[in-house]
């Protein structure tokens, strides 16, 4: 597998009880790509994203992060906890509900994994964390605790926290869905900056104009199947399936 493939998903299938949420999904994300995953609620898009770092275990198929298989070893056996954690650390994940660790201040939320997972020296981790805080526009909040931040600020800290792992790919799971409308913009602006800097990202979102502006590949999921994949212009201006046409009409 070439080095330039950040994420490679092959023949991925996943069911919850009787419901098949992903069906033979194939997706290649090249380094530097920004892929947005669109689809109605329940289409399987969050499940797909959560399979990438093995928060959900697929039933069949394979996922490689920068050439390394996640979850199962090459002979198909479950990875040990340490090996899984190591591959997971190659991805950075941003959740809909932020999931910051409330007992740690902003700076320590960001340095926690670099120090205690990656084994970075504290001063190096803190210097990097402060750079990332500057990048997300929160330099003045390093000592604040998550409980005192607004939703938009929390999500920007969560983005900095994920970036601190220096991941091969950033995964965004509806990063603005839990935000007040007036706070959505500040988070999207940060993600746009990251795409301009060449970060590889996979983004599940309901923000259509954002998806159009930020991505170079749009994937549309319906009932666990990828029904359309295209560059944003083709996707939004000339959708080839009626399913996507209907979806876009409903999302203005």
């Amino acid at each position: 597998m070439p080095e330039t493939t950040a994420v490679s998903i092959r023949q991925l299938s996943k069911s919850f009880a009787d419901v098949e949420v992903l069906r033979d999904v194939n997706l290649e994300v090249a380094a530097g790509d920004v892929v947005t995953i669109l689809g109605a609620s329940g289409s399987g898009k969050s499940t797909l994203l959560r399979c990438i770092n093995w928060l959900e275990q697929p039933d069949r198929g394979s996922i490689h992060i920068a050439g390394e298989r996640i979850g199962l070893d090459d002979s198909g056996k479950r990875m040990g906890a340490k090996a899984l954690a190591r591959v997971r650390a190659k991805t950075g994940m941003v959740f809909q509900s932020f999931n910051l660790w409330p007992h740690l201040n902003v700076l320590h939320n960001i340095t926690e994994a670099p120090i205690h997972v990656m084994g970075k020296p504290r001063d190096e981790a803190e210097t990097h964390a402060r750079e990332l805080l500057a990048k997300v526009g929160l330099s003045d909040k390093a000592e604040a605790y998550p409980g005192t931040l607004s939703g938009g600020q929390k999500q920007r800290v969560a983005i900095a926290r994920a970036l601190a792992m220096q991941p091969e790919v950033m995964l965004f799971d509806e990063p603005t869905s839990a935000l007040d409308p007036e706070l959505v913009g500040e988070v999207l602006a940060v993600i746009k900056d990251l795409s301009a800097e060449g970060y590889t990202m996979v983004i599940v979102t309901h923000e259509m104009s954002f998806a159009r502006a930020v991505s170079n590949q749009v994937v549309f999921l319906d009932k666990g199947l990828i029904v359309e994949r295209a560059d944003p212009e083709s996707f939004f201006d000339r959708p080839s399936t009626t399913r996507v046409q209907r979806f876009l009409e409903n999302h203005g």
Partner: peptide, 27 residues
């Protein structure tokens, strides 16, 4: 305890023991 925090820890490469000592137990 919020499951989301556990997932965030897993996503950041924490293994069980460290996650417990550093993130779960103090809270």
């Amino acid at each position: 305890f919020p499951q989301g925090q556990i997932e965030a820890a897993e996503a950041h490469g924490f293994t069980r023991g460290k996650m417990f000592l550093r993130l779960i137990l103090p809270q």
